[in-house]
Design a protein around this nucleic acid. Structure first.
Length: 489
RNA sequence: CGGGGUGUAGCGCAGCCCGGUUAGCGCGCCUGGUUUGGGACCAGGAGGUCGGGAGUUCGAAUCUCCCCACCCCGACCA
């Protein structure tokens, strides 16, 4: 059995699955479509979580927690919302088991009066709660975020990208005016874009969703779209302007300064463990993960090369002060003194797990007062003088973060093209993966036809492109600007 | 839910078509030794309801029927 990964060119999806499993991130659970996130995978998630959580708090939000179960009737209150989620809900119907001749069975006497839905998202139960929290303009805005698990009963699942249960955060805000809610919605999509670019190390396209792709119950959905290495798009975060839809559905009104009764304006926004999938697919190579230093649970692995305890002790002594120095400067380091694995094995293991920097120290280095420093992104190795190693590592981590982004950015630029002719578009979508900017007449029919014929969808209507008059590549009708097409996950 | 496929040791598989000793192989695991600067080597060892049930047969991993589970491709989706 090969110890490496399937080559990406052979089968991208198999490569991805192997990567997740072999890098020790996750595995299948006993429950179909659910995954076990293993400690190393979870450490990455925790890191992402803590950075995002800070960003939310810096923008004025607080964390709270709402119930896992939602009474079925709550879902019926917002028509579009229920339509969007009805097909994929896990439903609790009973509250007790009992012994019988056939073993443990659901007790038919323990049927719930009203079924409970395991939350696929929390708008309904949160707005049912906000109703009690809001009476006056003085109660607004409410800026709350929740870290939680949600369940969506999808037909097909894939590690991190689409699992039956997943972890996420969902922000739910309430505002006195439309302008405030819109401002919040836009602010949060920018927070996500900032996180993607400055932490996860890849560029994203910010835009709005078309009618057919919009969140069920939203007036406007903003999304960030990233380009993966196989040329497919991954929706990596969304922020929804909900208008007064949920306020009306749950009857959440407030009194304005001049004593008028009005419905509350809302936003909701979220990112999930899908970001882990994005991180993995955006950067990894056939040797394993490549993690951006800012999100790597451990940034530096130190591998001692020794034959006996005396040599290990000598190395340890040499390394101790450097480790203390690195830690003092905020660098996370692991000294791998296991004598149960050989150095070659450890090298391969840290590559698989995507540690940004690896330092090897052996007798030869002790003699020469050097270290061997290897970087994961380029796989380059250099023997460097021991003096100044700390600064060297710190600037290297910085450089790796920048290089990873630069590579991803270059890929995005190289794989984004403008196309005006539908025949060219069809051919392109078949042969060349990536983003296409094209004119569209703005109708659902045309969008559906393109999806039908090419499997490409409109990922978003990008915000920061210059308006450009043109004609729809399919129908020839007028278009006010290009939209972003791609095949998506 | 439609189409295709797979269930044999912890993991990956061969054996099945054409029934016949004690069911094999690679990886992993354990022990001992030699090793240790890129996934070590040698020797020994442990580990199996052959997915489940029924049937055919002197005899079933192998043939027949039923059931179950999982995977891939669609539809759906963050």
């Amino acid at each position: 059995m090969s110890k490496g990964l399937t080559k990406r060119s052979e089968n991208y999806s198999q490569w991805y699955n192997e990567l997740v499993v072999k890098a020790d991130l996750a595995e299948n659970s006993a429950v179909r479509g659910c995954m076990v996130i293993k400690p190393y995978g979870y450490a990455i998630w925790e890191k992402m979580q803590s950075v995002l959580d800070n960003m939310f708090k810096e923008t004025g939000h607080s964390n709270a927690y709402f119930p896992l179960f939602i009474p079925k009737s709550f879902f019926g209150k917002e028509a579009k919302h229920v339509e969007g989620f009805a097909k994929e809900c896990a439903v609790v119907t009973h509250y007790r088991l009992k012994n019988s001749d056939e073993g443990i069975v659901v007790d038919p006497d323990a049927k719930l009066e009203e079924e409970l839905i395991v939350r696929p998202t929390s708008e309904t139960i949160i707005w049912n709660t906000y109703k009690n929290w809001i009476q006056s303009y003085r109660d607004l805005p409410i800026l709350v975020n929740q870290w939680a698990n949600v369940v969506r009963w999808e037909m097909r699942t894939r590690f991190f990208l689409r699992t039956t249960e997943f972890l996420w955060q969902e922000g739910h805000t309430a505002h006195a005016t439309r302008e405030d809610a819109v401002k919040e919605t836009k602010q949060m999509i920018n927070v996500y874009a900032d996180f993607a670019e400055n932490w996860m190390g890849f560029p994203v396209i910010i835009g709005t969703k078309t009618d057919s792709e919009r969140f069920a119950g939203a007036v406007e959905t903003y999304a960030i779209e990233a380009l993966m290495q196989d040329g497919k798009a991954l929706q990596s975060g969304t922020s929804h302007f909900l208008g007064q839809n949920f306020a009306k559905a749950f009857d959440v009104k407030f009194l304005t300064k001049d004593n008028k009764e009005e419905y509350v304006w809302a936003s909701s926004w979220g990112v999930s463990t899908r970001l882990m999938g994005a991180l993995i697919m955006a950067h990894s190579d056939d040797k394993g993960l490549i993690l951006p230093p800012k999100l790597a649970p451990t940034q530096v692995a130190i591998v001692p090369i020794f034959k006996n305890k005396e040599q290990l002790d000598a190395i340890r002594e040499k390394v101790d002060s450097i480790m203390a120095d690195l830690k003092a400067k905020g660098v996370t380091v692991h000294f791998d003194d296991r004598d149960t694995q050989r150095p070659g094995f450890k090298f391969a293991e840290y590559e698989m797990k995507g540690y940004p920097v690896r330092i090897a120290v052996g007798p030869r280095d002790l003699e020469n007062n050097t270290f061997e420093v290897a970087r994961r992104d380029t796989l380059e190795k250099n023997v460097v003088p021991a003096d100044g190693i700390v600064d060297e590592v710190i600037s290297l981590l910085d450089e790796i973060q920048n290089n990873i982004y630069a590579k991803a950015n270059e890929r995005l630029i190289n794989n984004t093209v403008k196309i005006d002719d539908y025949e060219v578009f069809k051919k392109h979508m078949k042969e060349t993966p990536g983003f296409v900017m094209a004119h569209w007449d703005g109708t659902e029919e045309t969008e559906a036809r393109i999806k039908e014929e090419t499997k490409a969808t409109i990922r978003c209507v990008p915000l920061d492109v210059e308006p450009e008059e043109g004609t729809c590549m399919v129908t020839g009708k007028p278009s006010k600007g290009r939209v972003l097409f791609a095949k998506a996950y």
